[in-house]
Amino acid sequence: MILKALHIIFMVTWFAGLFYLPRLFVYHAMSEDSPSIERFKIMERKLYYGIMTPGMLLTLLFGSWMLVDYAWAMYSSFGWLHVKLALIVFLVIYHAFCGKWLNDFKHDRNRHSHVYFRWVNEIPVLFLFAIVFLATLKPF
């Protein structure tokens, strides 16, 4: 049970960053003055490296530990687990894209509008709904 609690705690931490970083990108893309742009660069870097990435790594660590410890033996024949794991792979890819966008902003190379990042900001919501429903309902 402690593994599951730690997994959930760090998943919440990871998702907090996944929800907030694209919102910072929205405001950063709208900024035109140098002090604001530099402030967003600092906030984005601290969020990505100080909260999101450790949250992701610890979520994956404790999730993998549960998978190896008992979940795979219990649920490997169920399709919901395979779909959930595939969604997690795509979520890690999304996280990497956030890192790419962070790097683009860092080097003043962003080519996307604030509207683009408003849409990007909705992606983790879809993943959260799907993953939580799969993990709790175990529908197939």
Rank of each mutant, 00 (worst) to 15 (best):
V115R: 11
S76Q: 15
A16N: 06
F133H: 11
L24A: 07
S76Y: 11
I123R: 02
F140C: 10
H28L: 12
V68G: 05
D108F: 14
V26K: 01
Y49W: 12
K4W: 01
T53N: 01
F10Y: 00
I2E: 00
D69G: 13
K106H: 14
W101V: 11
A5H: 12
G17W: 04
V89M: 13
W72L: 14
H82M: 07
N110V: 06
R45V: 05
V89P: 00
T136F: 07
H7W: 08
R109T: 09
D69I: 09
A29C: 01
I88N: 11
V120E: 11
V125E: 08
I9P: 01
L137S: 12
A86F: 09
F129M: 11
C98G: 05
T59A: 05
I2A: 07
L81V: 08
Y20I: 02
L24E: 07
V115L: 10
Y94A: 05
F62W: 06
R118E: 12
L81A: 13
D104V: 00
M30S: 13
E44M: 06
H95K: 02
F78I: 15
L85Y: 03
L81I: 11
L134C: 01
V26E: 02
E122D: 14
E38Q: 15
I2S: 04
L128K: 06
H112S: 10
G63Y: 01
G99V: 03
I37N: 05
S34E: 10
L102A: 04
I51Q: 08
L47D: 04
T53E: 04
F90H: 14
G63K: 05
V115C: 07
F90M: 13
S34P: 04
H7P: 07
V115F: 13
I123L: 09
P35A: 13
F105T: 04
H7L: 00
Y27I: 05
G50W: 15
R111F: 03
L24P: 15
F105E: 09
V120F: 15
L47A: 04
K41P: 00
H114A: 13
H82K: 09
Y94I: 01
M1R: 10
L6W: 11
R109N: 15
I8T: 10
P22G: 03
A29T: 11
L91P: 00
V89C: 12
G63C: 11
L91I: 04
T53H: 10
V120S: 07
F117Q: 05
S34V: 14
A135R: 09
H95L: 07
H114S: 06
K106C: 03
P124K: 00
L57D: 07
A5D: 12
L6G: 01
V125F: 13
R109I: 04
F78D: 15
S31K: 02
F15M: 06
V12F: 07
H28A: 15
K106N: 13
E32G: 09
L81W: 08
M1E: 14
S36L: 06
V120A: 02
F129H: 02
L6H: 12
E38S: 10
K106W: 08
L67E: 03
Y75H: 15
W80K: 06
